[in-house]
Amino acid sequence: MPLALADHHREFRSSMRRMARERFVDGYLERSLQDEYAFDTYRELGKLGLHGLSVPTALGGDGADAVSLGIVCEELGWADQGVASQFAVAALAHSYLAQRAQTAVAERWLPGLLSGELLCCVALTEPEVGSDAANISTRAERVEGGWRITGEKASITASHVADLAIVMAKTDPSAGARGVSAFLVDLDDASVARQVFRDPGLRSVGRGSLNFDGTFVPDDHLLGEEGRGFHNVMELFDLSRSMIGTLVTGGAQRAIDMAAEYVTQREAFGQPISRNQGVSFVIAEHTTLIDLVRTYSYHSLSMIDAGERNTLQAASIKWHAPRAALDAIRECVALHGNVGWSDELPLQALFRDVSAYLIADGTAQIQKLLVARHVLGREAVDG
């Protein structure tokens, strides 16, 4: 498997880096402190064509590979963690729709989603069910012409402002994971109630809950085969968890870059503080650790492009990458002293935003369980 970016990926990274730093660096700190969804940046991503990156060309997208998605996550993550989150959620939702939706349904909704006029969230987590996704309680009951969905989804990114949701619901409660199906639900319905949460980080994106009270979904809005929703969303997690690795790498790298510039300019006792090994070694250590996370994340994404199963790698990245990134950012805050602890610089914003990924897409505990099952076998771990 390739462990280095190919030439065309390097060229793409250069163009994405210029774009991200020209368009999204300014305003990050202000956006990170607001409590409203940043529709301006979301629509800007649509104008740039980035909402279609994961969609096949036949449906109006670019048909980009997984490594390219990771590159965009890293470069946007350096500029603005909230914008990177907007891109990542959209890429996953649009990819899922392009793969699973019936042609007529995809052609109806994708143009608005790709332009940035519409927004789709992915609704899996429930108040009592997080990582144990096979045991969701939301139900979809067959009725004439379609289905009626009843249940609550919680901690759903951008659900308070989304137009559509990919909703996982039980169509056969007795079948466990094999009884979960996926539906595309129009949230502009009187039977859907919403609640928004207030979080310390990723405030320009936000999360909330959705309550479905017999919400009608037409037959043609079933995504993929009935009973295959859990299997399909697990494949999506292998992509999203790898993308998170590059996304938080971007945030950590910005903190390291800021600290490297600061310590060479800040003087104490008549010399730059970078001449103290207690300072320079911190930069060296976290540069090494973040580069390792970056390399492994792109390796995992390249496995997807090669048709290889990457569940082990994705789970490893998901539990380790946010911790490594937060360690780096925290040390960079300390290297800046008092100003690093203030909201004058985006270091605190980076720390708050990256901390969301300790939980989002599965906690460290469930990721370690997945890794342990792979190494030791399910029977040895689960009994």
Rank of each mutant, 00 (worst) to 15 (best):
residue 4 A to Y: 15
residue 8 H to N: 15
residue 9 H to S: 03
residue 9 H to D: 03
residue 9 H to C: 02
residue 10 R to C: 10
residue 17 R to N: 13
residue 21 R to N: 14
residue 21 R to W: 15
residue 30 E to D: 13
residue 31 R to C: 05
residue 33 L to Q: 14
residue 35 D to F: 08
residue 37 Y to R: 11
residue 38 A to Y: 02
residue 43 R to M: 14
residue 43 R to S: 14
residue 44 E to I: 10
residue 48 L to M: 01
residue 52 G to I: 06
residue 53 L to P: 07
residue 55 V to G: 00
residue 64 A to R: 04
residue 67 V to R: 07
residue 68 S to K: 13
residue 68 S to M: 15
residue 70 G to E: 04
residue 71 I to K: 00
residue 72 V to L: 12
residue 73 C to P: 02
residue 76 L to Y: 08
residue 76 L to D: 03
residue 80 D to M: 00
residue 80 D to Y: 00
residue 81 Q to L: 13
residue 82 G to I: 00
residue 88 A to T: 12
residue 89 V to E: 06
residue 93 A to K: 05
residue 94 H to K: 09
residue 96 Y to G: 13
residue 102 Q to T: 11
residue 112 G to Y: 08
residue 114 L to N: 00
residue 120 C to Y: 05
residue 125 T to L: 10
residue 128 E to A: 14
residue 129 V to L: 09
residue 134 A to Q: 08
residue 135 N to P: 09
residue 136 I to L: 10
residue 139 R to T: 09
residue 141 E to P: 05
residue 143 V to N: 01
residue 144 E to G: 07
residue 148 R to K: 13
residue 148 R to I: 08
residue 150 T to N: 12
residue 154 A to I: 01
residue 158 A to I: 09
residue 170 K to V: 06
residue 170 K to Q: 09
residue 171 T to I: 08
residue 175 A to H: 02
residue 176 G to H: 05
residue 177 A to W: 04
residue 177 A to R: 06
residue 180 V to K: 06
residue 187 L to T: 02
residue 190 A to P: 07
residue 190 A to Q: 13
residue 191 S to N: 08
residue 192 V to T: 04
residue 200 P to C: 09
residue 200 P to I: 10
residue 205 V to P: 01
residue 209 S to M: 02
residue 211 N to W: 07
residue 211 N to P: 02
residue 215 T to E: 00
residue 223 L to N: 02
residue 224 G to Q: 02
residue 226 E to S: 14
residue 228 R to I: 12
residue 230 F to P: 07
residue 233 V to W: 12
residue 240 S to H: 10
residue 240 S to M: 12
residue 243 M to P: 12
residue 246 T to I: 01
residue 254 R to T: 06
residue 255 A to K: 00
residue 258 M to K: 04
residue 260 A to S: 14
residue 261 E to F: 04
residue 266 R to M: 06
residue 267 E to C: 06
residue 274 S to K: 00
residue 278 G to C: 04
residue 280 S to C: 06
residue 283 I to N: 00
residue 283 I to R: 00
residue 283 I to G: 00
residue 284 A to Y: 10
residue 286 H to L: 09
residue 289 L to F: 12
residue 291 D to N: 15
residue 294 R to D: 01
residue 299 H to M: 14
residue 299 H to V: 11
residue 302 S to N: 11
residue 305 D to L: 11
residue 307 G to F: 07
residue 313 Q to L: 12
residue 316 S to K: 10
residue 318 K to S: 01
residue 323 R to I: 11
residue 329 I to C: 04
residue 335 L to A: 04
residue 337 G to M: 03
residue 346 P to Q: 06
residue 346 P to C: 05
residue 347 L to Y: 00
residue 353 D to A: 05
residue 356 A to T: 13
residue 361 D to L: 15
residue 366 I to M: 07
residue 367 Q to V: 07
residue 371 V to A: 12
residue 371 V to Y: 04
residue 371 V to H: 05
residue 373 R to C: 08
residue 377 G to Q: 05
residue 377 G to P: 06
residue 380 A to Y: 05
residue 382 D to T: 09
